[in-house]
């Protein structure tokens, strides 16, 4: 990034609390409130709060989502951004395509043919790992060990593990996914949020 700015020029600044455009639905706010009772310290709600935000913001965490979580939990924006960017399942870098297909290429999956699945996906979808198809339908990623090595090679799509996967299966998986409207990251985030909530919270 090269930016020539005269020294002393005021820099663009972070939004003030009153400038935030809050997007959490009422039920999301209720969910966050319920989560606050699970811990003696509000800070612990950052991780589950980010899952809620990821769902509310369509499957990823743009800067506004992070600002909203920080605002609702009374933490600094930088701190929450630091937490969000640390974990790989929070999509902070870019909005993924409707369905994110994550291929494990670690150890057992590696020796059981995961890279052939990667090749097939790259060829079939016309994109490289980390990219999204032009129609915005699929993003493919390589991930670290999903710890389902007995079913190597394994994919994760939304909340589902798929394995052992063969190139033949990939076609059907893609076709089935095209029919699913809900983005997989939204479905995954929702599933994770629900798992936190007890019967009494709902």
């Amino acid at each position: 990034m090269s930016e020539t700015v005269a020294i002393g020029t005021p820099r663009p600044r972070a939004p003030r609390p009153e400038e935030l455009d809050l997007k959490f639905s009422e039920s999301a706010v209720a969910e966050l409130d319920a989560l606050k009772t699970h811990y003696p310290d509000l800070k612990s709600c950052i991780l589950p709060g980010l899952w809620i935000a990821q769902r509310e913001y369509g499957g990823w965490l743009p800067p506004e989502a992070i600002a909203e979580v920080a605002f609702r939990l009374n933490r600094s924006f930088a701190e929450v951004e630091g937490v969000a960017t640390f974990y790989t399942m929070y999509n902070t870098a870019h909005k993924p395509g409707r369905h994110m297909i994550e291929v494990c290429t670690c150890l057992s999956c590696h020796v059981c043919g995961a890279y052939r699945i990667v090749d097939y996906l790259e060829e079939k979808l016309g994109v490289k790992l980390g990219e999204t198809t032009p129609d915005g339908m699929f993003t493919i990623h390589e991930v670290e060990c999903l710890d389902a090595c007995d079913r190597a090679p394994v994919l994760q799509i939304g909340d589902q593990y798929v394995g052992p996967v063969t190139s033949e299966m990939v076609d059907k998986i893609l076709d089935d996914l095209r029919k699913v409207e809900t983005p997989s990251a939204v479905q995954l985030s929702d599933a994770v949020v629900k798992v936190h909530l007890r019967d009494g919270d709902k």
């Binding site: 820099r11 663009p12 600044r13 972070a14 600002a67 600094s76 924006f77 930088a78």
Partner: peptide, 10 residues
């Protein structure tokens, strides 16, 4: 290390 979104270090 960074500020939020590399915005102004206020």
């Amino acid at each position: 290390p960074s500020t939020f979104q590399l915005l102004d270090f206020e």
